[in-house]
Design a protein around this nucleic acid. Structure first.
Length: 302
DNA sequence: TATATCTCCTGCGGGC
DNA sequence: TGCCCGCAGGAGATAT
């Protein structure tokens, strides 16, 4: 599932192929991909044609393409959801084969600046489970940084140079809710999904069901630092992949799933103490933890 | 206002 | 073999 490291791999992979190129054609095949854009998929596609790409940005799990010509909608925000892929193809190769049944949108770009080398490229948005979306949007300034409006409510992620772990800990300390819930709350700290939340909590030795306001500041700091570490490690290995649902722009998978300590390893021995990893239901999804290293609190919130 | 739960969606795997 | 059900989970909407 694309979390921060996976989205960063996609951003870094996309950037050299699209910056300096102009969108020659665009098609948004799925209304669901354009569900957040009121004018609809056809209008979205029409609005993209002729735009020149200046940069590819990211905050947390949100990706955006910035256009150099300004205008009202100067970014295309892309969220990969659970299964979205941004695949860079050779246009001739794309034309020669049958499109993916899960192709939701695609654009063809041609070189527009002298700094841009090579020929046209084709970018496909493939999304099996259709939780992903595209949304053209203007920029706004938040906390001294320009971000697209749909990203304005998203907190800085642990890979952001201006990320402030102490500020995140201060916010967490005020919340009377499970600490894992806060790790998944993108307005508190962004980029963390179910996999990295479980891995960070395991590294910090804290059960995700503990109330954030009942944890000490050092414990919360340990969790936030662990989240940063685990995502940096994952990024170094090209992201996590369990199946073909997460791939980079070339369609290749990352390797970090081999380094996961607890996520998806129910009943397997904890790498630290050997106790069988426990699987629990949390927020309608699975949580994995070590019963010895991460003692479950006696209380239950609510 | 803060927190918790529901809903959207598709494909895979297991059980019957 | 075929059908049904549970599971996976990000994030906005809705409920408490």
């Amino acid at each position: 599932m694309p979390e921060l490291p996976e989205v960063e791999v996609v951003r870094a992979g996309l950037e050299p192929h699209v910056v300096g190129r102009r969108i020659a054609s665009a098609t948004v095949h799925s209304a669901r991909t354009a569900r957040r854009y009121e004018p609809g998929p056809a209008a979205m596609a029409a609005g993209l044609v002729g735009r020149t790409v200046k940069a590819v940005g990211r905050r947390g799990k949100y990706l955006w393409i910035t256009f150099s010509d300004g205008g009202d909608l100067s970014a295309l925000v892309v969220h990969l959801g659970m299964s979205g892929q941004m695949l860079v193809r050779d246009p001739a190769a794309s034309a020669a084969r049958a499109p993916s049944p899960h192709l939701r949108a695609d654009i063809t770009l041609t070189p527009d600046t002298t700094e841009c080398h090579g020929g046209p490229v084709h970018v496909e948005f493939v999304d099996q489970r259709t939780f992903g979306w595209w949304l053209p949007a203007p920029f706004t300034r938040v906390d001294g940084t320009d971000v697209p409006v749909p990203v304005a409510h998203i907190a800085r992620d642990p890979m952001d140079p201006l990320f402030d772990p102490a500020a995140v800990v201060r916010v967490m300390k005020t919340k009377h809710t499970e600490v894992k819930r806060l790790l998944l709350d993108q307005t508190v700290v962004s980029g963390i999904g179910n996999i990295y939340a479980d891995e960070a909590l395991w590294r910090a030795g804290v059960h995700g069901g503990r109330a954030a306001d009942a944890l000490s500041r050092p414990a919360l700091t340990r969790i936030v630092e662990a989240a940063r570490e685990v995502m940096a490690d994952a990024l170094a290995q090209g992201g996590t992949s369990f199946d073909a649902l997460y791939v980079n722009v070339n369609g290749r998978s990352g390797y970090f799933s081999r380094s996961l300590n607890v996520y998806g390893r129910g009943d397997e021995p904890c790498p630290r103490c050997g106790s069988p990893v426990r699987r629990e239901s949390f927020m309608n999804r699975s949580s994995y933890s070590c019963p010895r290293c991460q003692v479950r609190p006696r209380y239950r919130l609510r």
